[in-house]
Design a binder for these strands. Sequence first.
DNA 1: GACAAATACGAGTGATTACTTGCATTCTCA
DNA 2: TGAGAATGCAAGTAATCACTCGTATTTGTC
Lengths: 218, 218
Amino acid sequence: MPEPAGQQRAVRRQARGLKRMEVILDAAEAEIAETGYANTTTNAVAARAGVSPGSLYQFFRNKDEILAGLVGRYEEEQRLFWQRNLTEESAHEPMPDLVDRLVDAMVAFKSSRPAFWALFHGSATSDRLAEVARDLHEAVAHRVAEVFGLRAPHLGPDRCHTLARMAVATVRAVMPMVVTAKPEDAPALIGELKTMLNGYLAPALDGTAQPRNGPETS
Amino acid sequence: MPEPAGQQRAVRRQARGLKRMEVILDAAEAEIAETGYANTTTNAVAARAGVSPGSLYQFFRNKDEILAGLVGRYEEEQRLFWQRNLTEESAHEPMPDLVDRLVDAMVAFKSSRPAFWALFHGSATSDRLAEVARDLHEAVAHRVAEVFGLRAPHLGPDRCHTLARMAVATVRAVMPMVVTAKPEDAPALIGELKTMLNGYLAPALDGTAQPRNGPETS
DNA sequence: GACAAATACGAGTGATTACTTGCATTCTCA
DNA sequence: TGAGAATGCAAGTAATCACTCGTATTTGTC
């Protein structure tokens, strides 16, 4: 067969096809949110999208490529989120305010996108998905580290990166607790998370323990 | 068939059988450590154990029961670990020392049992396994909370439990970073983890900073 | 030694599921 | 308008894998 090995001509998608792809991705998103990536079958995705399995494979060559499509959509959203919430001004914002704002924004974002949540933090994951999630978190840490660098130029970039990775890891650890907690307990947990982040980041970045409103200062 | 429904007589295992079960569990442990629970096939476990699939099912009624057997072995180990490392004396130990000791012990334990690690923190998990891991971590948090209660009786048990859960979550978040880090970077990360835990726990438990007052009676 | 229970085997089985095939229809563009 | 490309379908296919079955051997007990 005279096919150009390892390289195949890009299909010229019609508007109809592009719409169809979005519908399929929507279905995949819902399906994955409900049952996890590993438990999601391509046939179920196709059925949910109102599409035959054959048509699904017209647009996505395999199951992984559906995931990749989903990730592509999220990446754009993520980019906008961080562009909006983390600017150069963040370097001069008081640490408690910064932490407060960011944590609240992340909580809001995650709870508004349950499918996103299930994808990147759910339990029924897969090797492939874990890898994607890791890259995504690493990218976030990088961006945070940059702001830390602006805030505390005397620290090396390596140290800033470490601080950022620790902060991101902590948020990731606590988020599931927030999500699964009873609604009345969630605010307290979010408060704890903020306390923890402040206690860790403020001394390291601003060189001071954060001010306390206690009665006495020794 | 005159079988007592829903309840079947326990098989009287011979010494040979008990040995065989251990061999199978060893094989399962190794297999899971290599490929994750979901990717582990019962046939592969049987082959690795030098046992036919039929024999495997003589001792374990299904795949989940193999996991349960493995968890049973770990539970005993865990019990001993915490009994050894967390006593009433821990209530009077200076916080930095306590954190230092516990984190080091946990790092040592985890790196000495890679299969344990893969089971409870690996990426390729499953719903079933995630559930088991959650219970295990909750049990640890409970034990830690008890010590916190001894240390700071003025805090309510609920608050102690929250502090413990946060601490456990943080350790869980950072451990993967430690394990996957280059060996020369690991100590620094462990140091960061200790700093973070100290900064969070010392003010809350030892009153070296003003505790945040919840809606507390009295 | 005799009998039952436990142990052992490995070829099979049924269900699942990612993906293919062959063919029909619709769009694009000359 | 017509040819080729894109879209669409649903019945299949091949591979995987948890688990079973029929049967043979070993062990414990009387």
